[in-house]
């Protein structure tokens, strides 16, 4: 069964995502709303990982072959300036989208297995991921014109 592999993937990618949000918070302290919101979202992603943990244990974090192809890209160093902020938020958006669709995939399997516990976790975490994406999109839309048209450096 590949679900266990996928749960492992999801668990790892949540860790990557939370780290990425923290990295962006740290790198963009001059944008206090970005710093603060990224920290709040990071701690909520920790909570998602915590909710997932018992299920990962239950299925066993068993990986099939080719685990490296299932790995998410790690977030690298934050950038600076208006465009730098935009690019970092876009990277977060990409990472967050990846966990979003992974939750969907896991949720489908949970339904197939009639695993109510997992279905509940997926449902709560999908809403939380939707919130991350909505915030990122809001902030990206706000930043884009200034960064692309008039920002220096």
């Amino acid at each position: 069964m590949h679900l266990a592999t996928y749960l492992g993937l999801l668990h790892t990618s949540l860790g990557t995502l939370a780290d990425a949000f923290r990295e962006v918070a740290k790198g963009h302290g001059d944008e206090p709303d970005v710093e603060r919101t990224c920290e709040v979202l990071a701690s909520r992603i920790d909570a998602q990982a915590e909710k997932l943990s018992p299920i990962v244990d239950r299925y066993g974090e068993h990986r099939e072959t080719e685990p490296e192809r299932l790995h998410t890209a790690e977030f690298e160093q934050t950038r600076t300036g208006g465009v730098g902020l935009l690019r970092d938020l876009q990277d977060l958006y990409a990472l967050s989208s990846f966990t979003d669709i992974t939750w969907t995939v896991v949720g489908q399997a949970a339904q197939g297995l009639r695993d109510k516990e997992l279905m509940d976790v997926v449902s709560a975490c999908e809403q939380d991921t939707a919130r991350q994406l909505a915030w990122l999109k809001t902030r990206i839309k706000q930043s884009a014109p200034q960064a692309l048209i008039v920002a220096k450096g």
Binding site: D33, T37, V40, L41, R131, A134, W135, K137, T138
Partner: peptide, 10 residues
């Protein structure tokens, strides 16, 4: 908006 983050409702 989402009151926690300020994300706009579409």
């Amino acid at each position: 908006h989402d009151l926690l983050t300020g994300a706009s409702t579409t």
